[in-house]
Design a protein around this nucleic acid. Structure first.
Lengths: 224, 224
DNA sequence: GTCAACATTCTTGTATACACGATTGCGAGG
DNA sequence: CCTCGCAATCGTGTATACAAGAATGTTGAC
């Protein structure tokens, strides 16, 4: 039994667990038993505990002293609030992008917007989801604020599982694309105020639609 | 040697270490030796490592694999970026506060503003610093977005050591107070857009002044 | 049959032993 | 005198032992 984890296993530990939580493979509220996880990954409890701590700091799991770790559950209210903040952050990014983007940023944004358009035309939701993500990332990058990028990425990741479902509903893909177009226009026109507002609304609308959906589900399920 | 940390020691561990970093008692770049810390606090390395992990997640220390933990250093650029984001977050809070504050929020805000005024009149920088913090907290609270409050608090804490020096300079206290007044007016007038803008500028100005100061220092010291 | 109190079991939190990468200091070669 | 390489040392990462709180099951009384 090696005393040094084979370099990749360390990351695998964290990434795999994080993924299973983010994808919902391990459902919210599920208890995370240290021993089981340790056995499963073939390591001792020590590195498992470290990973759990990190995931707790990221808000993915909740550690109750002496009572173990569970996958964090986000209620409708928390989701609304997080989408609201996400909107604010993305709005910031939009504003900064409008004021600071470089020629390369322009090109990248337009290229990705084209890809979004293509995905939307072909009706490929998964492809659109992927390109949508890249579009947002490109705007973050164009803000040229590394700290903001970090914050956006972190929150984006955390909300990921909730956004995914949501594009499949109605013709959200079409309106999303239209909103992108408007945002991009504002950015290219160097209009920071407008870019911020449009971007914020774009994200908040997503959030609202989704949280409506969640709230609807929540009514049928007793809080637990 | 007790195997169970006496309940309070656990928090003391984290708080004390965090404080010493935030106050600069342990200077940025300083190596944090696990064994020394363990000895100092009278515990083993295990809880120390946990605390270090948490502080790393909060951005206060940097853990370099196999090479130990050091107190994180923020360069001028990072500080600018963080203040920029802080401004955005506080702006968000201002906007939401304008739209959502309750009667209690109104009263609290006015009460604290009065306290700020009193502190400014008496020229007591420390008192003003304290009341200023409370004013910002009151605005956060009036946003009624718990997640935003968390984010603001976290970033606020992290920037704390940098803001403190800065009020002592010039007549920053007077202009800070004037800015508060304007922000409060906008909030009480339910003008979200204006509250956001004023609040953002208020914070960003603080940041800029401070980072100018830091940048000035940085020129004299070779990057290390 | 229900509930409470106790004993048992399970799981977490801490301490410690040990392995191995990183650092450092020394000596040999240029 | 400087540099490179190696050896000794140091410090971190992991596994494991153990203590004590939490959960669970059992038994007894009402």
């Amino acid at each position: 039994m090696p005393r040094v984890i084979p370099e990749e296993t360390r990351k695998r530990l964290r990434d795999e667990l994080e993924n299973e939580i983010l994808t919902g493979h391990i459902p919210p509220g599920q208890k995370l038993d240290e021993v089981s996880l340790a056995t499963r990954f073939g390591v001792s409890r020590t590195p498992i505990r470290e990973v759990l701590q990190q995931l707790a700091s990221a808000g993915l799991v909740e550690i109750r002293p002496r009572r173990g770790a569970v996958v964090a559950q986000l209620g409708p209210e928390q989701l609304v609030q997080m989408f609201e903040v996400m909107g604010g952050l993305e709005g910031m990014a939009g504003r900064m992008a409008a004021r600071r983007h470089t020629e390369e940023d322009r090109k990248a944004l337009q290229r990705i917007q084209d890809a979004c358009l293509a995905a939307a035309r072909s009706g490929d939701t998964d492809a659109y989801y992927y390109e949508n993500e890249r579009f947002h990332q490109a705007i973050h990058a164009a803000s040229h604020n590394a700290f903001l990028i970090e914050q956006c990425t972190a929150l984006h990741r955390r909300l990921k599982p909730y956004r995914r479902l949501q594009l499949r509903h109605r013709n959200r893909m079409a309106s999303s694309l239209a909103e992108h177009t408007a945002v991009l226009e504002a950015i290219l026109a160097l209009d920071g105020d407008r870019a911020e507002r449009l971007m914020r609304d774009h994200v908040v609308i997503q959030g609202e639609r989704f949280t409506d959906f969640i709230a609807m589900l929540a009514e049928k399920v007793p809080a637990g």
